[in-house]
C-alpha cells in the first residue's frame, strides 16, 4: 500500500510539467500620461509559443475604428519561428474637459495546437489624456477662436536650380573644350607648342634628325603664325622678345638645318641631337614663363 502511494505521488510529480501554449509573454507600452487628442499610441506584444503552437492572426483586432474615440491605424505581425511580435498603433480621438483616464481595450489572442485551442489574454492598458483647450470659451475678434487655415507652401525649386547649374556648367565646359579643339584659344595653344615638340623629340634618335628638325620648325612656325626663315629672326624677336635670349641657339638651329637639308654628305652626331633637345627645353621654359 505504501509502495503504491509513493508510485502515485511520483506519477503526479512527473505529470505536473508545464504544458501551457505560451512560453513567454510581454507587452511593451509607452508612458501612460501626457497624451492629447489625435495622438498615436504604439503597443508591442511579444509572444513566444511552445513548439507546434501557432498564433491565429484572425483573432487579432482588425484595422479601423475600435470604438467611437479609438482607431487602430496599423497592425503588423512579425513571425520568426515560435516568436511573434505584434505591433499595434492606436490613435485616440477623445476630447476631455479635464485630464481623464482612458483605457485601450484588451483582447484575446487565440493559439492553436493541432485540434486544441488555447488563448492568451492581452490586458487593458490605461493612460491619461489631457485637453488642449481651456474649459472657458476663448473668443477672438472673429468669434469662436480656432486655429487658422494652413496656407499652401510655395513650390520647391531646389531641384530645378541644381539641374540648371549642373547643366550650365556642363554646357560651358563642353563648349570650351570644343573651342579649344577648333583653335579659338590661340594663346592657350601657343603655350604648349614647345611642350609638344619636346615630347616628340625625346622619342627620336639621331637617325631621325630630319623629323626632329621638322618638329622644331613647325613649333617656331606656329608661334610666328607663318613659316619662319633665318633672315626673319629679327622680326620674330620683335614679336616675341622673350625669345631674344635664345638668339644664338636659334641662329645655330637655322644654320644647322640649312646645312642638313641642303648640303650632301653631312654626318649627324649624337651631340647635335642633344643640342637640339636642349634648345627645345629652353624654349619650353620661356613658353611657360619659368625663364
Amino acid at each position: 500500500m505504501r509502495i503504491l502511494l509513493v508510485a502515485l505521488l511520483l506519477l503526479a510529480g512527473c505529470s505536473g510539467s508545464n504544458n501551457q501554449a505560451v512560453s513567454y509573454f510581454h507587452i511593451e507600452t509607452p508612458r501612460p500620461f501626457g497624451y492629447v487628442i489625435g495622438d498615436e499610441i504604439p503597443q508591442r506584444i511579444i509572444i513566444e509559443t511552445r513548439p507546434d503552437v501557432t498564433l491565429q492572426t484572425a483573432s487579432l483586432p482588425a484595422k479601423g475604428p475600435i470604438n467611437r474615440w479609438l482607431n487602430l491605424n496599423r497592425i503588423s505581425v512579425i513571425n520568426t519561428g515560435q516568436h511573434y511580435q505584434i505591433d499595434l498603433l492606436y490613435q485616440v480621438f477623445y476630447a476631455p474637459l479635464e485630464v481623464k483616464m482612458l483605457t485601450l481595450p484588451g483582447f484575446k489572442v487565440l493559439l492553436k495546437q493541432g485540434e486544441q485551442t488555447d488563448s492568451q489574454i492581452i490586458p487593458d492598458w490605461s493612460f491619461n489624456l489631457s485637453p488642449l483647450r481651456e474649459l472657458a470659451v476663448r473668443k477672438s475678434d472673429d468669434g469662436e477662436y480656432m486655429r487658422p487655415d494652413a496656407a499652401p507652401s510655395l513650390l520647391p525649386n531646389t531641384l530645378n536650380v541644381y539641374g540648371l547649374v549642373v547643366s550650365l556648367c556642363l554646357a560651358f565646359l563642353i563648349a570650351a573644350y570644343l573651342c579649344f579643339l577648333y583653335g579659338y584659344f590661340p594663346k592657350l595653344l601657343r603655350r604648349t607648342l614647345f611642350k609638344q615638340a619636346l615630347r616628340k623629340i625625346e622619342a627620336l634618335s639621331k637617325s631621325d634628325m630630319d623629323q626632329a628638325l621638322t618638329t622644331v620648325h613647325q613649333a617656331l612656325n606656329s608661334l610666328y603664325r607663318q613659316p619662319l626663315f633665318h633672315n626673319q629672326l629679327s622680326h620674330f624677336f620683335q614679336l616675341n622678345p622673350q625669345y631674344q635670349q635664345m638668339s644664338s641657339e636659334l641662329d645655330w638651329f637655322f644654320t644647322y638645318s640649312n646645312r642638313y637639308f641642303f648640303t650632301s654628305g653631312m654626318v649627324v652626331v649624337q651631340l647635335d641631337l642633344e643640342k637640339l633637345k636642349e634648345l627645345c627645353k629652353q624654349c619650353r621654359k620661356i613658353e611657360r614663363g619659368s625663364q
Binding site: 487628442i37 489625435g38 495622438d39 498615436e40 474615440w69 476630447a95 483616464m101 469662436e144 486655429r147
Partner: peptide
C-alpha cells in the same frame, strides 16, 4: 499626419461644439 497640432486643436473645438454621445469607462 498625427503631428498636425492645429488639426488637433480644431478637432477639440468641434468636439466641444458637438460632443460625442459615447462616454467611456
Amino acid at each position: 499626419d498625427s503631428q498636425n497640432w492645429d488639426a488637433k486643436y480644431n478637432l477639440e473645438v468641434a468636439m466641444r461644439l458637438l460632443p460625442e454621445m459615447d462616454r467611456v469607462n
